[in-house]
Amino acid sequence: MAKKNLTTEEILHIAKLGNLTLNKKEIEVFKKQLSSVIEYIDKLQEVDIKDIEPSSQITGLTDVLREDKVEESRTLTSGEALANTKSKEGNLFKVKAILTE
């Protein structure tokens, strides 16, 4: 099986996809650990999967839908909705300005 060695660039790319920022030490540790895991999962490449359907779910259920009805019992008050945030303004959640022109 091919030896896997993730580069720093690759580690930073996948960290970015996951919206994570890593320090230098993390980069080195994860590079080693993830490379060995990827090397391990690469063994799947030897399985013959011709004509096999993927299973993203295993229930076999289809068409589990709800009727278009308003359900007020589950609706939160704005107080409840905002109860766990650290940053709000009135009835709104607040974040740092997002750049737009």
Partner: peptide
């Protein structure tokens, strides 16, 4: 099942 009426909501996050 939340109400779909964002344009007429009296307040945000209700």
């Amino acid at each position: 099942g939340c109400k779909n009426d964002p344009f007429h909501a009296e307040k945000p996050n209700i």
